[in-house]
């Protein structure tokens, strides 16, 4: 395979694997009415990236470290009664991350391109190493879902019911958030911290709109995630447009189609 063949294989594989895995995560985040968790974790990863750039540290590992830290803080807050609405709590964490990102960007005086890449992402930046990490984390996600889909489904339906039935709600939530932190960080280069939220929420929202059961919703959300990334990439390449923006707009377009489908195919409620 020649150089361009390798590049396009990498880009296409990254788009499909990243879109599919983020689409799957979104099912549980949207289901828990906590899709904003994704944007907090992605901004924590971005803040880590800025920190790494400032201090000359490895970008992926630093981003992963800050994303994991955010995931653990979120998990702790979710698992304890802190007498605050969850969206307010997430809003405060989001503000903290944004503040750190802009502070770091303000301190950097030279070329900002790598930092802007973290915000907007580009599939053209994807390397073989990134793809290997994405594949590895996707396998862990599949393993987690095979083991804990029943538990996650129950927790998403009712956290209280899960707790009173003796499910290890706190443990499963923490594992899920840690896994989310890894997958979001691995996809940061491709989609960018600002746009990753759309891949977490739109494919899942589309799947909930037309899916009849949780299994179908999970499969549909993964497919919609892959389609958003794949079609977005093709449009981006074909019309020389920004990749992250094309992926985001494709995911919103798919949601619009799902709403139309629902209008003409109302289910049993």
């Amino acid at each position: 395979m020649n150089f361009w063949g390798n590049i396009w294989f990498l880009i296409t594989a990254a788009a499909i694997i990243g879109g599919g895995s983020i689409g799957s995560l979104g099912v549980y985040m949207v289901g828990m009415r906590l899709s904003f968790i994704g944007i907090v974790i992605s901004h924590a990863a971005m803040a880590g990236g800025v920190l790494a750039y400032l201090l000359g540290l490895p970008v992926f590992l630093t981003s992963l470290g800050t994303a994991l830290l955010a995931a653990l803080v979120l998990g702790w807050l979710l698992n304890h009664e802190i007498h605050m609405e969850s969206d307010v709590m997430l809003g405060i964490l989001f503000s903290l991350m944004m503040g750190l990102i802009f502070l770091g960007m303000g301190i950097v005086r030279d070329d900002m391109t790598p930092l802007l890449g973290l915000m907007w992402g580009s599939l053209l930046f994807v390397k073989a190493q990134d793809l290997a990490i994405m594949v590895f984390l996707s396998f862990i996600l599949v393993g987690f879902l095979l083991l804990f889909h029943k538990e996650m489904k129950s927790i998403v339906f009712s956290r209280t019911l899960g707790i009173v039935c003796g499910l290890p709600v706190n443990l499963v939530t923490i594992i899920f958030l840690v896994l989310s932190a890894g997958i979001i960080t691995a996809n940061l280069n491709m989609i960018g911290g600002l746009l990753i939220y759309s891949l977490l929420s739109c494919p899942a929202a589309s799947a909930y709109t037309i899916g009849k059961n949780m299994r179908a919703i999970l499969i549909l959300s993964s497919i919609f995630g892959m389609l958003s990334a794949g079609v977005g990439l093709a449009v981006s390449f074909g019309f020389d447009l920004p990749t992250g923006a094309c992926i985001t707009l494709t995911s919103v377009f798919i949601y619009g189609m799902a709403l139309l489908w629902r209008k003409f195919n109302p289910g049993d409620g």
Binding site: G31, M32, R33, K153, V156, F157, S158, R159, T160, L161, Y208, G211, K212, N213, M214, I217
Partner: peptide, 9 residues
């Protein structure tokens, strides 16, 4: 009970 009725269980 905090049932999330958007989940089609």
């Amino acid at each position: 009970m905090d049932f999330n009725l958007s989940i089609p269980l």
